[in-house]
């Protein structure tokens, strides 16, 4: 079957990315370098590159599967974690932590990470609350509510930035660009359980998501529990995105582009589409990050800037090409 072949190709690409990208960068490493016991090469490889690539693959996969699930849930091609204000909440949290400063670390993570996670969960709680209350029976209203919350968060971020001095403002702007620069495996191990939980939950909802493609009325008549589905998909994707934004900052467009491409390639069945998005999104972000490291080496372009630069025009092309 076509979707199986595509999945195998994607798995191959994913594995190749995992094995090759850690060798590439401002300094090319060969397998020989790694075997030669050169401490610098081994630190660069094991403490910097491998965790960075793993983080990119987890984050890219997580962004793509939550983008996919939200697009199906809202029946709207523009839905993604960022349009729903989840990243907006994370940004607000991060910016507040940067402004207030000096409360160091919590649970081994920098205050900024903790605050952005809390911010993302806060916004998600508001959206979930709306979804569960009777006020927004229409899913489209929920999407609009998300956009409104997102805009409010951006406004608050601007306000906090205005209050901050320029070093802090600069840090805030820098945080907004997103980045995958990590040392060691703390961030990867933090993200891993969230990603596994997200993958499993969304796969369990695959029939509901498939049926939702045929319209809410029909889906509900056949037994889809819309509340449960909304709660599950929104809850899982916001927890997932909150967890990853906390360590990488916002990285846009991955959740938008990857599902769109793969839907054309794999077909609409979420059973293949969810793993495909996980694999494709992971490989895509790791390759983007490789590009971001390479373009301006030895300087590093924040990967969020690169995905945004690629994302806009690419999405436009996709829309125009899709109308043929």
């Amino acid at each position: 079957m076509r979707s199986r072949r595509v999945l195998l190709i994607l798995a191959g690409l994913w594995l190749a990315t995992l094995l090759l990208t850690p060798l590439l960068g401002s300094r090319l490493l060969s397998v020989g370098d790694l075997l030669s016991q050169d401490p610098t090469a081994s630190t660069i490889f094991w403490s910097l590159r491998v965790p960075r690539v793993l983080l990119a693959m987890l984050a890219g996969g997580a962004l793509a599967i939550s983008g996919l699930a939200l697009q199906t849930l809202f029946r709207n091609p523009l839905a993604e974690p960022y349009t729903l204000g989840i990243a907006g909440g994370a940004a607000l949290g991060a910016v507040l932590a940067l402004q207030i400063e000096g409360f160091g670390q919590a649970l081994g993570f920098p205050a900024v990470a903790v605050a952005s996670f809390v911010g993302a969960l806060g916004v998600s709680a508001v959206i979930l609350g709306l979804a569960m209350s009777g006020y927004t029976r229409e899913t489209s209203t929920l999407l609009l509510a998300g956009i409104a919350i997102s805009l409010s968060c951006s406004a608050l971020v601007l306000f906090v930035q205005y209050l901050a001095d320029f070093t802090k403002t600069f840090r805030m702007v820098r945080w907004m660009m997103g980045g995958l620069s990590v040392v060691g495996y703390g961030e990867v191990l933090w993200l891993l359980p969230w990603v596994v939980m997200g993958l499993v939950t969304l796969l369990l909802f695959r029939w509901d998501l498939n049926l939702l493609l045929t319209g809410e009325e029909l889906a509900v008549s056949r037994g889809v529990d819309l509340k449960k589905l909304r709660f599950g998909v929104l809850g899982v994707s916001s927890a997932l995105v909150g967890a990853l934004v906390a360590v990488t900052g916002p990285i846009g467009f991955v959740g938008l582009i990857v599902p769109h491409i793969l839907r054309r390639w794999v077909g609409p069945d979420h059973l293949s589409l969810i793993p495909a998005c996980f694999l494709g999104g992971g490989a895509f972000l790791a390759l983007c990050d490789l590009g971001a490291r390479a373009i301006m080496a030895p300087a590093e372009l924040p990967v969020g800037v690169l995905t945004a630069l690629l994302g806009g025009p690419f999405f436009l092309w996709l829309l125009i090409a899709g109308r043929r």
Partner: peptide, 30 residues
């Protein structure tokens, strides 16, 4: 100030980094 080139730093093999309090992320990484 806020996007250190970690690979360059590793290659330089420093034994002391002097930072400002605002460089919290780099401090943790170093």
């Amino acid at each position: 100030l806020f996007d250190a080139r970690l690979e360059v730093i590793t290659t330089l093999q420093p034994d002391l980094a002097i930072l400002l309090p605002s460089e919290e992320k780099l401090r943790v990484q170093l």
